[in-house]
Write a protein that binds this DNA or RNA. Structure first.
Lengths: 201, 201
DNA sequence: CACAAGTTAGTTAATAATCATTAACTATTT
DNA sequence: AAATAGTTAATGATTATTAACTAACTTGTG
């Protein structure tokens, strides 16, 4: 009945992918090994060949997510700019389109940070903090050049990133509300300029 | 051994209170009937006299929360104002201090909307939507008076409320980050003016 | 006022389902 | 033949829920 076999690395990645999908839509405890196994077309004990526990699978999922956050390119691009609106635009676009284009990710991260207290910090650090730190630097830089007002860079950065992440989550979660459904582009186009204008001197 | 007995209404409220606390700090599946029972100093089957299932307890918790959102007073206050900054300030303050002063609540609501798909809409409607609708009206009003720019009121309102709710959640969740811990007042004082300035003509 | 009869609030003990994990074994690949 | 990828079947823990019973209140009637 069994037939073909998969290679170890393939299978491992398949498990992570399937688990990512599941954890993004259900809480940690609601995802069962049976669900993961079924999604991979194997039996539950097969999973234990690759991960010693459910917790380890979860950790692998988080790790694979944080690896995807690479801000090198974005940072380089941004540091050449002197316009806060352009900078915010780029950051928002990067969050919404590049890294969190699978919007499951933003859900997963929020969800995990809400329920797994110990992992929350690590998740936050891996995904949210890099953006915040980048923006803090930019705010300081522009402030020194007197291009923006004297705001608290830490609070402001946290707030802006939070706003964008909330958009990412809300969009798919609450979808059509008040009779209207919006595209990410519309949301950025409307909100980023508001924030940018408020920062300008 | 048994001794005193509690009245039905007292006990029911006690169960809801205890469950609110538990659901706010653990996900739905992580909260067990045993935990709820212990918190109420009764045995598990006793809970079934008041609620026919765990799900029903959860629903009762959500219901009791949504009942607490009363915007009458806030709405009256706000409609007298012609200053967008003042309006945003009041709304933010109301969210952060009045309704979500037990920050567990905001966690619980976010968490539940993230994992219980069916209840998500109902939770959203109960807690988030009233604020959004109120702000939409105000934005339209001020726009007609040419006091703010021509922005999409729905997107803008959603975004602002999302930003504030994210602050409420983030504050307690991630607490001290980047070496600094902020008070809600500081956060409002920094962010609301940015948003308000960006909206002004 | 008394007090039996019924109702309500609670208990202990059992049930059935689900879940993560392990043991022991088999088939496939190298 | 050695190593790897997978299986079936069992285990033990936890869980929500129910059954069967008991103690404490309430009420209607003499």
């Amino acid at each position: 009945m069994a037939g073909k076999r998969n290679t170890s690395t393939n299978r491992k990645q398949q498990i992570i992918d399937a688990a990512t999908d599941l954890f993004a839509n259900n809480s940690y405890e609601r995802v069962t090994m049976s669900m993961v196994a079924k999604a991979c077309n194997v039996t539950e004990p097969a999973l234990y060949r690759y991960f010693s526990s459910k917790e380890k699978i979860y950790e692998a999922v988080l790790l694979s997510l944080s690896l995807k956050v690479d801000l090198e390119e974005l940072a380089a691009w941004i540091k050449a700019s002197r316009d806060i609106e352009e900078i915010l635009q780029e950051i928002a676009g990067h969050i919404l389109n590049n890294n969190l284009k699978h919007t499951e990710l933003s859900r997963l991260l929020l969800l995990s940070s809400l329920e797994h207290r110990t992992l929350a910090r690590q998740v936050f650090t891996a995904v949210r903090l890099p953006y915040i730190d980048l923006l803090i630097d930019e705010l300081k830089r522009l402030r020194e050049m007197k291009l923006i007002r004297d705001v608290n860079p830490v609070i402001t950065a946290r707030c802006f990133i939070g706003m964008i992440m909330d958009c990412a989550v809300s969009k798919n979660l609450w979808g059509k509300m008040q009779g209207e459904r919006f595209q990410i582009e519309e949301v950025i186009e409307n909100n980023v300029p508001i924030f940018a204008r408020g920062l300008k001197e």
